[in-house]
């Protein structure tokens, strides 16, 4: 009960504070607010520069992708590291490496007639669905430059396709496709691709993640195209990590860290 009162006090206090701050916000949807239009007399705001110069600088139509993977690519790299750290943390917390008496707590699903029927229907449907989902995921990754999408979304969808396989056909089947050693390595390689592309431009003699430096390597007509291609490489790295870790989190949570049995 005491917690309820504490919660009430905290909620009322924080809410009042936030509303107090909201009261002198610019109107919702105003294009002239400092965030959108910049401070008066200070020239173009950062976001206006993003909108106007993304096309000349990187040849990428989707500004979100350009800002995400290039201008603020350092943020995105650490975002991928956050995902990787979450995966490692879950392994550290939950993974049971030594089975105590050789048997795990969960009985493998029953083989009754009814269960088999369900299995056939669900299994067949998912077998048809999963390739389509995976193809869509790859499309989302590849088309991130031109439409909404990119490494995270594609990675999550790709990871979800493996999760679906685990749900419909049992975790063992999914783990045959993507075993533990594989997905941990895949997650690490994903971040490594990202940071490696950044490091490559350092070797060329420019700053970290300066994709323009890769122009001679990629043989593009100008630096903008080099940025565009390097962003695609970076997105692929993100996809690797996100796919692997989403699946890893699922298998750990569903099997209490035993990576057997599952839901």
């Amino acid at each position: 009960m005491a917690m309820k009162w504490l919660a009430l006090v905290a909620v009322v206090f924080t809410g009042a504070l936030l509303i107090y701050g909201v009261s002198d916000f610019p109107d919702w949807g105003s294009a002239d607010s400092p965030a959108n239009g910049g401070i008066e007399g200070a020239g173009r705001s950062v976001s206006q520069t993003f909108i106007q110069e993304t096309k000349p600088l990187t040849h990428v139509p989707n500004m979100v992708t350009a800002v995400l993977a290039d201008y603020r690519g350092y943020d995105t790299m650490f975002e991928t590291v956050v995902v990787f750290a979450a995966g490692m943390a879950i392994f550290a917390v939950l993974r049971v490496l030594k089975t105590v008496d050789g048997q795990h707590s969960r009985v493998i699903r029953d083989r009754s007639v009814d269960g088999d029927h369900q299995r056939i229907i669900v299994g067949t449907t998912c077998k048809i669905l999963i390739p389509v989902i995976q193809m869509f995921a790859l499309y989302v990754v590849a088309h991130g430059h031109h439409s909404p999408g990119g490494g995270f979304q594609g990675g999550v969808i790709l990871g979800a396709s493996f999760i679906l396989l685990g749900l419909s056909d049992g975790m063992e089947t999914a783990m045959e496709r993507l075993s533990e050693g594989k997905f941990v390595a895949m997650a690490a390689i994903g971040v490594l691709i990202y940071a490696g592309i950044g490091l490559l431009s350092q070797f060329v003699g420019r700053d970290f993640l300066d994709y323009g430096a890769l122009q001679p390597l990629l043989g593009t007509p100008d630096e903008g195209w080099a940025r565009s291609h390097a962003m695609l490489g970076v997105e692929v790295g993100v996809t690797f990590t996100v796919t692997a870790i989403m699946f890893a989190i699922y298998v750990n949570l569903a099997s209490k860290g035993e990576l057997k049995g599952g839901l």
């Binding site: 909404p148 999408g149 990119g150 995270f152 979304q153 979800a160 749900l167 989403m246 989190i249 699922y250």
Partner: peptide, 21 residues
């Protein structure tokens, strides 16, 4: 749109699965 896409995949999809698991 990008945020919405991510939220559809992450929020409505994967985190619900994690919670249910």
């Amino acid at each position: 749109v990008d945020v919405a896409f991510t939220e559809a995949a992450v929020g409505a999809g994967v985190s619900a699965v994690f919670l249910i698991a």
